[in-house]
Amino acid sequence: MKIIHCPINGPRPLQEFHFGGQVREMPVGSQVSDAEWADYVFNRSGEPGIQREWWYHTASGTWFIAERDCQSDEFIRTYLYGGRESDA
């Protein structure tokens, strides 16, 4: 069973989590062109390598950030947005 470290609840099984997509900066809508806005809405990096992602611990309602290798599926770090960190 795959274990993920929730920054609040510690090691928990994968089944308790929900994937929330890549972490991306939202541009200010009124300050960018239509093309830049479309790029933000649709495009993703999708490349093999380490990416920063949102994950949700369903049982406790905790959103947090994980740095994960999307080829080896290894979680490198997990931490709350702007907050506490736990080693994966």
């Binding site: 890549q22 790029d39 649709f42 495009n43 993703r44 990096s45 999708g46 490349e47 093999p48 999307c70």
Partner: peptide, 16 residues
């Protein structure tokens, strides 16, 4: 594909 498109600097919505 997401390993090929960076070779030509193309951004896409693809995730694998």
């Amino acid at each position: 594909t997401t390993a090929i498109t960076p070779m030509v600097g193309l951004r896409t919505p693809l995730t694998v």
